[in-house]
Amino acid sequence: MSEGVIHDIGYRHYDGARLGSAYGTRALFVFTLRGIFGLGRPARSKVMPFFLVTVMLLPAVVSIVVMTLMNETAMTYTSMPTIMQAVPAIFLASQAPTAVAPDLRYKVLPLYLSRPVGVTQYVLAKYAAMVLALFLLMAVPLVLMFVGELLVDMPDEPLRTQQFAAGLFTSLVLAVLLAGVGLLLASLTPRRGLGVASVIAVYMLCLAISGALVGTFESVGRTTATEWAWLINPFFLVDAVRVWLFGGEVASGGTYPPGPGPALIVIALIAFTLGALFLRYRKAAAR
């Protein structure tokens, strides 16, 4: 019988499971996703993401209230991402640097690369986390609105299932496109503040140029040029892809170039940003 307590049990070896790099990639994905929403970080890191999530949910709540009280639809699923476009843009600007900048600025990357994960898996995990975060931000309000519509069950209005699907599609394509642009810009400027500023600047620039060109071309009556000028804004670019595939009203209020043009631009942009992101990290890893 021993009554003593052994406090220092000494070093214990680990002989349990050692999982592969796919598991490590997933762990990094979850860690990054949590970081984007400030989970497991100090309270001040949670303020911005959760404020923006709340703002995104407001129109959905208003829409449900309108459906309940007035028995009519207040907002289309497809117009939601474009009407609220400033919110995903700010979310991207404030949170994309959170996902990639500290690892570069504080040189955390070598801690990852000295483990089984490689540069490719690292970039994919970061990218996937940013895509999912943006998708959740834009899609959750749509889902909430759709659940509301199911529950309210308006007698005069048919269920807008196809439009809901089109809205989810827009959110997904936007998430994939914006995540790449945001991470690329943020990874080029490892200081978080500069990252935030550069992402927001690029968005504002697109918004302003697109608006100015649309106005100019419209006033001189050049319809085709006006149609293409809309697409400089990434939100309308993706909206144009949605219109081409699903039909429905044009969220910008104008018209888009017909055919697969916008879709090809989106694919090219995604390929470019991903490629540039890989090159950026290949270079960062070699240091």
């Binding site: 680990y14 050692r18 598991y23 762990a27 990094l28 860690f31 990852y112 483990r115 089984p116």
Partner: peptide
Amino acid sequence: TELVVHLGQMSGLPRTA
């Protein structure tokens, strides 16, 4: 704690381990 647990997972250890 958060960092070391995370990097342990990156090395292939299940979360609880």
